[in-house]
Simulated assay, not measured.
Amino acid sequence: MKKFLALATSVMLAAGTMLMSGCGMAGSNKGDTGSGGNAAIQLKVGFGSSIDTSAGGQGLKKFKELVEQKSNGKIEVQLFGDGQLGNDKSMMEALQMGTLDMTLPTTSPVAELSPAFLAFDMPFLFTEPAQAYKVLDGAPGKDVMSTLDEKGIHGLVYFENGFRNLTNSKHPIKNISDLEGLKIRTMQNPIMLDTFTAWGANPVPMAFNEVFTALEQKTIDGQENPNVLIYDAGFYEAQKYLTESHHLYSPYLLMIGEKKWKSLSAEDQKLIQECAEEARDYERQLSQKIDTEYLQKMKDKGIQVDELTPDAIQKMKDLSKPIYDNYADKIGKDRFDAILKAAADK
């Protein structure tokens, strides 16, 4: 009887070990996990675009590499791209609930949580990347980021999404009159709607993952996004014309849920912040490089590229002035003044 019990116990233990091993192997195939689930801390990161071909995705891969290397495998970063875990809004809600650890949305949908972020949707606020970096990485950008603390989210750094450009299937856009009546998809953001209305277009707010089908079926005439996303999402396949309007600089915000952040030691928080800053600098350089490369690829595939006339840019800026005034109080007038001052200082 003892021999039988001993044999039965051995079989059960062996079966349990095999089952646990099998579960571990299955789990390692979900997302870009890297270290096989042996880390003491896991960070699950969701992203709306491609991990492999977008600058933001490549920045997240660099962040993963740095964190896992510098923590000696103590912290594991799992990446889920292409909207596998939802859109920007739903992933931010998941951060607040503690069911997702990190995400990288553009700042426009973040304004639904904190109106302070509306400042970064102002047309022609920035005219060159260095100017944007100075504001975002300086006191004004950190002040805006801090408004998320009371919303259950902790901001880490601003990545680069890039300057937004216009595409459409109707005709070249060189003058502001060329926008008249065009159905242009915009982000679901009040400033974007007011801006394109002021410019004479017919703005259509729409989730990013619905845009390609709408362009293909001609329910909208065009859209506006950075070159990297226009190419990565294949929008150019349903468009004939691209205008390098640079009407808005669009940053990403790397964020972590406050519950997860507070569960980390001060040492781990410092490591994650430092890795985020290093990944940010890498991502920004890459973003500028592939922005140029992807524009050329779209030219090679037949899309016509134009530029706005100086007169058109000035008219668009003039028509945008009331929008600055209308949203100053929502952003916080002192906060917005500090942003404008920092942007203006050379």
Rank of each mutant, 00 (worst) to 15 (best):
M102K: 03
Y252C: 09
Q269N: 07
V204C: 03
K262Y: 02
I331E: 13
K297Y: 02
A130E: 15
E216F: 03
D232Q: 12
A116D: 14
M102G: 07
S21Q: 12
N175T: 14
D268T: 01
K299S: 10
S28D: 10
I290G: 05
D194C: 02
P203S: 09
N209V: 05
D318Q: 14
A238W: 03
G98S: 02
N161D: 12
Q304A: 15
Q314F: 01
N326Q: 14
K260C: 01
K64C: 06
N168Y: 00
I184T: 11
R335A: 10
L308K: 12
T127A: 09
T219Q: 00
R185I: 13
A111F: 00
F212H: 10
R164D: 13
S320K: 10
K333G: 01
S250N: 15
L66M: 07
L60V: 02
K218T: 09
T99P: 03
M97C: 09
K151H: 00
L166Y: 15
D334H: 08
P203W: 03
S50A: 06
E274G: 03
T103R: 10
K62R: 15
V110H: 05
K270D: 14
F117Q: 07
M298Q: 06
P322R: 10
P109A: 12
M1F: 11
V67C: 13
L182H: 07
A8G: 12
S28N: 14
K134R: 13
E293T: 13
Y231L: 09
L308V: 06
S169P: 06
S250P: 00
V204D: 07
R284P: 00
F80T: 07
G22H: 14
